[in-house]
Design a protein around this nucleic acid. Structure first.
Lengths: 369, 369
DNA sequence: TAAGTTAGAGCAAACGTTTGCCCTTGACTC
DNA sequence: GAGTCAAGGGCAAACGTTTGCTCTAACTTA
């Protein structure tokens, strides 16, 4: 005698497929097939109707754990970002989530905290949870984590940062061209002494933006132009303040400071303000990513557009294809990253148009108000 | 004859507990007990050692799906926010995630998009996935979703917004006191005609901030004081611009505009700027939440502090307790929400200190630059 | 020394699905 | 009218754990 299912067990009152089958007077396998659109052709249509009706009325919905255990597939995808608090990732998280949900997937989000080992262990964990696929925004260049994803056989899409792995599809901003355009912008404004604050070069974004800067600089390698690169150790506002503070203390003469991202740029603005240097009249500043509110700062920040939502959406879309078709070709997408010109970049002081800027230290002037 | 486990199946090469048991020459139940610290006292310690060693060397880790199916428990918690893109929720997401992870839980994040039905269906889904508990930042007042959580028997903590349900623990900001303090602040500055832009009153936050505003207003119900309430339909910058645009068009005379949140306040600033009204000289503006960068706007925004990280951390902590002990008493935590005074609030124009402000329309003046 | 206790380990059921295979039945073919 | 076939449905194993129960042997205790 089969015990009737105890509906009150553990506080969960959920009908199982055997309840449905019993009620319909059929075998559980029949119920299973009838409920699954992929297999319901094996069952007579009136039986399908009956079983569906009973399932509905019992409020049956399949237990994803049991189903996944049997099929070795789940309805979940994983999303890994390097930092959950950085506003840069908010639209990516939101859009990946939305896109995945529209295909019936729920999303695990995890933060790798910019730590390569943590990334590895998260991937391990997610794989153990049988995620159907992974969207990763944390890859570094030649990241062993990319190999791990492939070894584990989990479909993976890189967003924002491209590990440069031949087996991993990716979607990212065109940082090289973006940065070239940014340099062109400040050159147009007459700047001849330009500094670029880069982030640690482990990430493709950092590498590419530096490459763009360097490429643009190479075109003006003549006398009268000066291009400096300073390396920051972090990605946040404080680091920007520290770095620019040091630059000023070292007597830097740059009239334009381009930053790896907006947070560093905001830090730069603060450091300049503290030093009594007026932006953009004395020094221009620009960032990358065009975070929310950057247009409302004073001065409003010039930046490179970052299509966070598109990144996430297209990335998730790509992942869905990869999941559906294991042999989907590896694809690589680059999104244009145009310069968003605002008030923090302006004409170079004493610009002569000849390319020969007079030697000059950043003067301390009282902050305007 | 048992077939040897096919390690290459479906691309996943994972040792199971039966591999460990076979290798150790013991029954799988013995292996299971040896591997579980809760039950390993039932097995001789040298056997435990041997089995652990073999497990390690085989790279065994338990399949969470199978384990959860059997135990009806998972190592996952759910987090539901109303909007993934709002910077307000970023620190909450990050901190819940961190705190849960430190207890070995992975986190599902979902967005209810401010839609009550969507919230219900997300809770349903998560419950089906056997989440161990739920952190919910989307509750409305007297939300049926709160009943659902209880009915499903899933431990739940409300953060930020309190559904006011006797069975649900919560942690939130003290919006009533915060708003009172904000009103006191602008009264101190001499303002006598104060407007408050509220959000839809479905949420406890909206209700409480309005209550705080009303309570503070009640103390000055004498002639010469005027307190207006305008209801916004949304929570974003655009809505703030629209609402304040309408107010101006309607000839509002308020010299201080308090807003439900920073996004509305930013919208208010934009509308004022468009109208050529100078903040704070002509009209003061304040928000709530103190989002990142609000101190860098021009003018820097006065706001109420929001302890997002604490909210998430304490909320998750509370959830861990609830999970560990089903009979943990329902607790309610309120965090102080002090006024962060910045440049967007200033002395009332024509302030006399007598409480009798002269009738005056908001004058259009050219925007300064 | 007989009875009772305990430690250590195995047995098998259970969690809720899915799916390859088999069986029955009725229709169709030659 | 015997053989073929397809449709419709049942059987039982499998996914990888956990856990109540049983069994055996060794160890106490009176």
């Amino acid at each position: 005698m089969r015990q009737p299912v105890d509906k009150t067990r553990s506080g969960r009152l959920r009908a199982t497929i055997v309840d449905v089958a019993n009620q319909a007077g059929v075998h559980v396998s029949t119920a299973s097939r009838a409920l699954n659109p992929k297999t319901d052709h094996r069952i007579s249509s009136k039986m399908v109707g009956k079983i569906r009706r009973i399932a509905e009325q019992l409020g049956y919905s399949p237990n994803p754990l049991a189903s996944s255990l049997r099929t070795q597939r789940t309805g979940t995808v994983g999303l890994i970002v390097p930092n959950l608090s950085d506003p840069l990732f908010a639209p990516i998280i939101a859009s990946v989530q939305e896109r995945a949900a529209s295909d019936g997937y729920v999303t695990f989000v995890a933060s790798s905290e910019y730590k390569p080992d943590k990334l590895l262990s998260i991937i391990e964990t997610m794989s153990r949870h049988y995620v159907a696929g992974l969207v990763v925004a944390s890859f570094e260049l030649a990241d062993p984590a990319a190999d791990l994803c492939l070894a584990l056989g989990v479909p993976t899409v890189a967003v924002l940062r491209d590990p440069g792995h031949h087996g991993i599809s990716s979607i990212a901003m065109d940082d090289v061209e973006g940065m070239k355009a940014m340099v062109a912008h400040v050159l147009d404004l007459g700047h001849r002494d330009i500094a670029y604050i880069t982030a640690p070069l482990a990430a493709s974004t950092a590498r590419n933006r530096l490459a763009g800067f360097a490429a643009a600089a190479a075109l003006r390698s003549q006398a009268g132009f000066r291009f400096d690169v300073i390396e920051a150790d972090a990605y946040d506002v404080d680091e920007g303040t520290r770095v620019v503070g040091r630059m000023l203390a070292d007597g830097a003469r740059s009239t334009a400071i381009l930053c790896f991202n907006d947070l560093l740029a905001v830090g730069a603005l603060l450091a300049l303000r503290t030093a009594g240097i007026v932006c953009p009249e004395q020094v221009s500043v620009a960032g990358v990513n065009d975070l929310p509110f950057m247009g409302l700062l004073s001065p409003p920040l010039t930046s490179l557009h970052n299509a966070g939502r598109t990144l996430g959406q297209v990335g998730a879309e790509l992942l869905m294809k990869l999941i559906a078709d294991k042999d989907h070709p590896v694809t690589r997408v680059l999104l244009p990253s145009p310069v968003v010109i605002r008030g923090s970049t302006g004409p170079a002081p004493f610009a002569t148009g000849t390319g020969q800027a007079p030697a000059r230290k950043l003067a301390k002037r009282p902050a305007p108000r």
